[in-house]
Amino acid sequence: MRYVLFAAAAGAVVAAAVYAVTVSGRAAVSAQDFVNLQQGDSIQAGFRRAHAKGFCISGEFQASGELAAYSSAKALQPGSYPFIGRISIAGSNPTAPDLRAPVRSLALTILPDTVHQWRTAMNTPPVMAVATPEKFYQQLLAIQSNTVPQFFAEHPETAHFLKWRSHYQPTQSYATERYHSINAFYLVDRQGKQQAVRWAALPLTDDAGVISDEEAADALQQEFFSRLQHGPVRFDMQFTLATANDNPADATIPWPESNPQLSAGTIVIEQASLQEEGACNALNFDPLVLPAGFLPSKDPILRARAAAYAESHRRRAREVLMQHVAGGADE
């Protein structure tokens, strides 16, 4: 009898360990599944699995204080705060041509190296095509199998995204794009009162820019670097407040233009550097690294972004570590 008991108990312990290591948390789609799909068959060692191509920027965020009544976050009180950022294009190829990318993005870590840091990864589309990580995964699968029209037809919630896409004209410069938080967040004031918001970086320049070489893979990067030599590039950080009619947990629906809009301040980009040499390379622009005064909304995509970015960060850090170890051994 005690042998049976021992075998049963030992078996249960082993089974629990195997379950914890392999199955737990996987559900329908795991962070690993997402990143596997994004990186595709040819792994670009050391690079981000999504938005692999980009460069580092830095400068300061000049906060107006207009949002200070809504949030206790330091970055929203009047003042100038340094940031490290990254401008990038969608895709897993670190040498892809800038001008062919469907999505451009601007990511910031305002007040890095402090407890007040606020990370945001903003993209050119104002909305998601679908509202859940599982459907987003299906969308990525559809892109790979060239069945996107069918996917859109089967998912009516993609209508707002498709409407945006049909009107969207990529600009000739990263400095003249509009970058959106896409997901909603809550601002929290000192009394604990919450206000749902979305935000966007809106260009503050009339200079459309000149692409010197349309064929160059780095066409937009070159334009941006040469633009910076004539002075900083500015964006207005505009917050849109949700009303009772808006659902902060659904990133597929744009909020009405009539919603209150406030300017949190100006993003002043002063410097740019190649990503291998820049401070942004070590950062994961996880939109859930938020200071006190901010809270994530219930949007499930937001959690999935954080989890997938973390997995991508782990993989490229491991590759860079291995390259480092191998490099050290060669010397």
Binding site: G25, A31, K298, A307
Partner: peptide, 10 residues
């Protein structure tokens, strides 16, 4: 939590 995309992950 390293695998999950669930809402309670954070």
């Amino acid at each position: 939590m390293v695998k999950s995309l669930g809402p309670w992950q954070q």
